[in-house]
Amino acid sequence: MTPLAWARPRRWSILSEAVLAVAVALAAWPILAVVNGEPAPVEVVRDYLEALRDRDVDRAESLVSEAYALEADRSWLTAEATSSDWEIESVELKSASQTTVHAVIRSGDTRAEGAFKLESADDDLLITNPYMYVSVTSPLLSSLEINGVRGDVAVADGAAVSVALYPGSYSLFASVPELTGEDDLSLLALPGSDLGAYSLDSFDLNAVMTDPLTGSEAIESRLNEELAAWLDTCAESSDLAPAGCPFSAAYDYGIAYDGRTEFASVSELDWAVEIYPKVRFNRDLRLEVVEPGWITLNGKGSAVFEGGESTLDGRCGVDIENVTPVIGEDGGLTLALAAAQDNTCRW
Rank of each mutant, 00 (worst) to 15 (best):
residue 322 N to M: 05
residue 180 T to F: 01
residue 79 A to Y: 10
residue 307 G to N: 02
residue 335 L to V: 05
residue 174 A to M: 04
residue 284 D to Q: 15
residue 18 A to C: 03
residue 244 G to Q: 13
residue 264 A to C: 07
residue 81 A to K: 01
residue 96 A to K: 12
residue 217 E to M: 13
residue 206 N to S: 13
residue 226 E to Q: 10
residue 102 H to G: 01
residue 218 A to R: 12
residue 172 L to K: 14
residue 196 G to H: 07
residue 301 G to S: 05
residue 50 E to T: 11
residue 327 I to L: 02
residue 61 E to G: 00
residue 79 A to T: 13
residue 66 E to F: 00
residue 329 E to W: 00
residue 280 R to P: 11
residue 74 R to Q: 06
residue 337 L to C: 12
residue 176 V to R: 06
residue 162 S to A: 10
residue 261 T to G: 02
residue 119 E to A: 04
residue 33 A to Q: 05
residue 300 K to A: 14
residue 173 F to S: 04
residue 168 G to V: 15
residue 221 S to R: 08
residue 292 P to T: 02
residue 40 A to E: 07
residue 159 A to N: 00
residue 189 A to R: 09
residue 295 I to P: 03
residue 280 R to D: 03
residue 330 D to C: 08
residue 194 D to W: 01
residue 84 S to Y: 10
residue 184 D to N: 08
residue 67 A to I: 01
residue 273 V to R: 05
residue 77 L to M: 10
residue 228 A to I: 08
residue 292 P to D: 01
residue 28 A to H: 01
residue 170 Y to F: 12
residue 102 H to M: 03
residue 81 A to M: 02
residue 268 E to I: 09
residue 301 G to P: 02
residue 230 W to H: 10
residue 237 S to L: 09
residue 164 A to Y: 09
residue 42 V to H: 11
residue 67 A to Q: 04
residue 32 L to M: 15
residue 252 D to Y: 06
residue 267 S to P: 03
residue 79 A to N: 13
residue 188 L to W: 02
residue 288 E to K: 04
residue 117 K to W: 05
residue 288 E to N: 09
residue 127 I to H: 00
residue 233 T to S: 12
residue 318 V to Y: 02
residue 344 T to L: 08
residue 144 L to D: 05
residue 198 Y to A: 15
residue 116 F to T: 04
residue 56 D to S: 12
residue 198 Y to E: 14
residue 328 G to D: 10
residue 320 I to T: 04
residue 128 T to V: 14
residue 150 R to Q: 13
residue 104 V to T: 13
residue 241 A to Q: 08
residue 66 E to W: 03
residue 14 I to C: 07
residue 121 A to M: 15
residue 75 S to L: 07
residue 129 N to M: 04
residue 159 A to I: 08
residue 276 Y to K: 06
residue 226 E to H: 04
residue 292 P to L: 00
residue 189 A to T: 14
residue 7 A to T: 15
residue 204 D to W: 01
residue 275 I to C: 07
residue 181 G to K: 11
residue 206 N to D: 09
residue 141 L to G: 02
residue 235 A to G: 08
residue 171 S to K: 10
residue 191 P to K: 12
residue 215 G to S: 07
residue 22 V to P: 03
residue 80 E to W: 02
residue 43 E to N: 03
residue 15 L to D: 05
residue 340 A to E: 09
residue 316 C to R: 03
residue 280 R to S: 14
residue 40 A to H: 07
residue 168 G to R: 14
residue 306 E to Q: 11
residue 96 A to M: 01
residue 31 I to N: 00
residue 148 G to Y: 07
residue 307 G to D: 03
residue 48 Y to V: 06
residue 281 F to N: 03
residue 324 T to C: 10
residue 204 D to H: 00
residue 72 A to Q: 14
residue 77 L to H: 02
residue 254 G to A: 11
residue 174 A to E: 07
residue 14 I to K: 06
residue 276 Y to N: 10
residue 118 L to I: 13
residue 193 S to E: 04
residue 347 W to H: 06
